[in-house]
Structure formats: C-alpha cells, structure tokens
Design a protein around this nucleic acid. Structure first.
Length: 220
DNA sequence: CTCCCGATAT
DNA sequence: ATATCAGGAG
C-alpha cells in the first residue's frame, strides 16, 4: 500500500481511535430509519428526534398504522420531512411485502428501498451486518478531496472507488468512521483546523489555505 | 440539474 | 444573512 495513504490512516487512527456510528439505534431497522433521516441534517438533530420516534414506532406495522401527516409532524424538525415520511411508509410496506418485515442484508436489495441510496446502503451493511464498506457522505467526500485521496471534481462514486482501491478491505469500515470524525471535528467545512493539523505537510488544500489568507476573520 | 427543508453555526 | 448538515429521487 501507498505510504502516504498509510500515514493518513495511522494519523487519523491516533486522532480518533474510537470513531463509531453516532446515530443512535438498537437494530438494523432503526439504523436504516436513522440513516434515511440523516440526509442533509446533523446526527445530533436526528438523535433528538429518534429518541422519541423509536419509542412510538418499533416495527414497520407501527409506521403504517398512522396517517402520513402524523408521521410528517413526528419528524418535522429533521427537514425534508415530506419526502422522508413518505419514503419511510413506502419502505415499511415494501419490507412487509417482500422481505418478511426485516431489513434485507444485501446492498442491492437495500438500494431498492425508497429513500435508500448507495451511501445509506453502505452504512447499513457495514454497521449492521459487518460487511466492509466505505460510505461517502459529505465529510468523507470533502476530506478525501482535500487530502488528495480523490480528485477535486470526482463524483461520490469515483471517490468511493478510489478509497476502496487505496485502503485495505479489512480497514474500510473503521477508516470510514475515522474519516467522518476527522471531517466533522477537525477538517471541518467552515473552519478547518489547519493550524494544528498533523497532516498539514501532506495536504495541498491545507497549505493553500495557510498561504492565501489562513484564518478568514483575523484582525487589522 | 433541481427540489426537498428545519436546525444550527458562523 | 448565509453556509452546512452521515442524500435521494425525478
């Protein structure tokens, strides 16, 4: 394996040794609902909503037993709530019709579920079923491009392929979580901590930022 | 590509 | 006021 890649993996491993899934859940069904809800929304907000949501709705039948408008109101604070409520009910009906009420284990079956795309399916198979995968979300995409693990104009699918090629398969899931923690808490979208970043010397984006302006809100 | 969308940080 | 948040579907 490439030495720069090894250096990156070791560094983020020492920064975030206990990176994990931050969406609260207690089974594959809850995880799938939580990830579906997490689109364009923070994990923190999702957890606030699912705390009560998962007490009220425990199985597909529960989500189908209420009017769509009621489910919409129950997840309103998440945002994109009309699409998401609709997808949840369709997903639950499909689980009952074709999968015995259970979340399917295969990536292909998962992406056939309404509201479940490639990224969500990757999160579910890796976190719930132990299948190695690298889900490319907004954080993974940003970090991979800043560090040069992917090209600046690569699609999320291209980013995923390049990461899978560069990272050993048995490290995919852990690396995925560490890249997210690194992106969420250190290499942030708005105020990246380049000044104290142990990867600054191998980061083009970081060095570019340190030259041209650095910290954007400094004094005269 | 556009739309969906409220909560939070900056 | 604007940017961003564990995206997906049409």
């Amino acid at each position: 394996m490439n030495q720069k890649v090894r250096h990156i993996l070791d560094t983020i491993a020492s920064m975030f040794p206990d990176a994990h899934c931050e969406l609260h859940h207690s089974n594959p069904f809850e995880l799938t609902i939580a990830v579906l809800l997490s689109a364009q929304c923070t994990d923190e907000t999702v957890n606030k909503v699912t705390a009560s949501l998962f007490q009220k709705y425990k199985c597909p039948e529960d989500y189908l037993a209420v009017p769509l408008e009621e489910l919409q109101q129950d997840i309103r604070r998440i945002g994109l709530y009309r699409n998401k409520a609709n997808n949840i009910q369709k997903l639950c009906q499909l689980l009952l019709d074709k999968h015995g009420g259970e979340i399917p284990r295969s990536h292909e079956q998962l992406t056939e579920l309404p509201g479940v795309g490639r990224k969500t399916a990757n999160v579910v198979v890796s976190n719930a079923f132990g299948v190695p995968a690298i889900a490319v979300d907004t954080h993974v995409e940003r970090v991979a491009k800043r560090l040069g693990l992917a090209g600046p104009d690569d699609s999320v699918l291209e980013v995923e392929k390049k990461l899978m090629k560069k990272v050993p398969r048995d490290e995919w899931t852990l690396t995925h979580h560490r890249l997210i923690f690194f992106g969420r808490y250190h290499c942030k979208a708005q105020n990246p901590q380049c000044e104290v970043c142990p990867l600054l010397d191998i980061c083009r984006e970081g060095k570019r930022r340190m030259k041209t302006g650095g910290s954007r809100k400094s004094k005269p």
